[in-house]
C-alpha cells in the first residue's frame, strides 16, 4: 500500500512535469515538415491510347525544429516549412505506446494490454503486406501475369524464362495448399507444402552445417600449440609467443573438454570425467560472457527508448543538435 502511494505520487509528479514542460521553454513534442512540389510530365502513349498529362503532388519531408525556426526567422509568412499535425500526433502516440509498455513494470494494466493488442495486429498485417509487395508481386505475379504487373505496378520488370514460370506455378500450387491449413477439413493436404519446406530446409542445412560448422570449425581448432610471435626486427618475441601459445592451448583443450562433456556414450568417470568437469567450467565461463553481453544489449535498447522520450518527445536534451536554441532553455533556466 505504501509502495502504491509512492508510485501514485511519482506518477503525479511526472504528469505535472510533462504539463510544465509543454508550456515552458521551447515547448515539446512538435514535428515540422518541409514541402516540395513535384510535377512530372507524362508523355502520350499511342499504344495505350493515353494523352499527355501532368502528374503533380506535394512531398513532405520531416525537418528538425531548428530548420522551422530558421525559416520563420527569415520570413514569418513562409509556408514551405510548417507544423505537421499528422506527425506530431504520431509522435505523441509513440510516446504513449512507449510509456504504456513501461507501465507493465509496475503491474499489468489496460494501457499495456491495449498496446500489446495493437502490435499483434499491426505486425501480422505489416509482414503480410511486405510479403505481398516485395515477393508475391515481383516474383509470383511477375512470372505468371507479367503484362498485368508491368502495366500496374512494375513497368521495368524483367521478362521471366519458362523455368521460372514453372517454378512459380509450382510455388502457387503449394502456397494455396498451405492455406488449406486454415480450413477445418483440408489440414492434411497442407502437409504437402510443409513437406517441401522441411525437405528444402533439411537439404540446405545438412550441407551448410557440415561445411561451415563441423569442418571449418574443427579445422579452426587445430592450432599450433606453440605459436611463435615476432617483433618488428623479425626476432621471436618471448612474452607474445607465450601468451599466443597459451591461448591456443586453452582453446584446443577447451573445445575437447566441452565435447567430452557432450559425449554421453562413455560414462563420465576417471580421465573422461575430469575432462568433462573442465568442459563444464568452460561452458560456465561461456554463459557468463553471454550474460554480460545480453545485459549490454538490453541496456542499449533501453537507452534508445529513454533517449526518444527525453529528446524527440520531451525536448529535454538535444544530443543530435535538432533544436539547438531552445533545447536546454528549460533545464538551464531551472
Amino acid at each position: 500500500m505504501k509502495l502504491s502511494r509512492g508510485w501514485i505520487v511519482v506518477s503525479l509528479v511526472v504528469a505535472a512535469l510533462i504539463g510544465v514542460r509543454a508550456f515552458t521553454g521551447g515547448g515539446m513534442g512538435r514535428v515540422y515538415v518541409k514541402s516540395e512540389a513535384v510535377s512530372i510530365d507524362v508523355p502520350a502513349d499511342a499504344a495505350k491510347g493515353t494523352a499527355a498529362t501532368k502528374v503533380e503532388w506535394t512531398a513532405w519531408a520531416q525537418v528538425p525544429p531548428r530548420v522551422y525556426k530558421a525559416a520563420e526567422a527569415t520570413n514569418p509568412a513562409q509556408t514551405e516549412v510548417v507544423f505537421s499535425w499528422g506527425r506530431t500526433i504520431g509522435l505523441w502516440i509513440a510516446a504513449f505506446f512507449t510509456l504504456a509498455i513501461f507501465s507493465f513494470l509496475y503491474r499489468d494494466n489496460p494501457a499495456y494490454r491495449f498496446t500489446e493488442a495493437v502490435i499483434v495486429g499491426v505486425s501480422a498485417a505489416y509482414a503480410m503486406v511486405l510479403g505481398f509487395w516485395e515477393t508475391v508481386v515481383p516474383k509470383l505475379l511477375g512470372a505468371l501475369t507479367p503484362d498485368f504487373v508491368k502495366g500496374w505496378v512494375l513497368p521495368s520488370l524483367s521478362d521471366q524464362g519458362p523455368a521460372q514460370v514453372v517454378a512459380m506455378c509450382f510455388a502457387l500450387v503449394l502456397g494455396v495448399l498451405l492455406l488449406m491449413r486454415l480450413s477445418p477439413k483440408g489440414g492434411w493436404i497442407s502437409m504437402w507444402p510443409l513437406a517441401f519446406i522441411i525437405g528444402v530446409t533439411a537439404g540446405l542445412k545438412i550441407v551448410s552445417h557440415v561445411e561451415s560448422d563441423l569442418i571449418a570449425q574443427s579445422v579452426a581448432t587445430f592450432k599450433p600449440l606453440v605459436a611463435f610471435k615476432t617483433d618488428a626486427t623479425g626476432a621471436v618475441a618471448a612474452w607474445p609467443t607465450v601468451w599466443a601459445s597459451l591461448a591456443n592451448i586453452l582453446v584446443v583443450a577447451g573445445v575437447l573438454c566441452c565435447l567430452t562433456y557432450f559425449f554421453f556414450s562413455v560414462e563420465h568417470k576417471g580421465l573422461v570425467g575430469k575432462g568433462a568437469r573442465v568442459g563444464i567450467w568452460y561452458l560456465m565461463i561461456t554463459f557468463g560472457a553471454a550474460f554480460g553481453f545480453t545485459v549490454m544489449g538490453r541496456v542499449a535498447l533501453l537507452a534508445a527508448r529513454v533517449e526518444f522520450l527525453f529528446d524527440d518527445w520531451l525536448w529535454l536534451i538535444d544530443p543530435a543538435g535538432k533544436r539547438v536554441v531552445e533545447t536546454m532553455s528549460m533545464l538551464t533556466a531551472w
Binding site: 503480410m128 505481398f132 509470383l140 512459380m168 510455388a171
Partner: peptide
C-alpha cells in the same frame, strides 16, 4: 525460389 514465394504466402497463413 519457390521456397521463398511459399514463405511469403506463409505470412497470409499466419495472418
Amino acid at each position: 525460389d519457390a521456397f521463398n514465394v511459399i514463405a511469403a504466402i506463409a505470412f497470409v497463413l499466419g495472418a
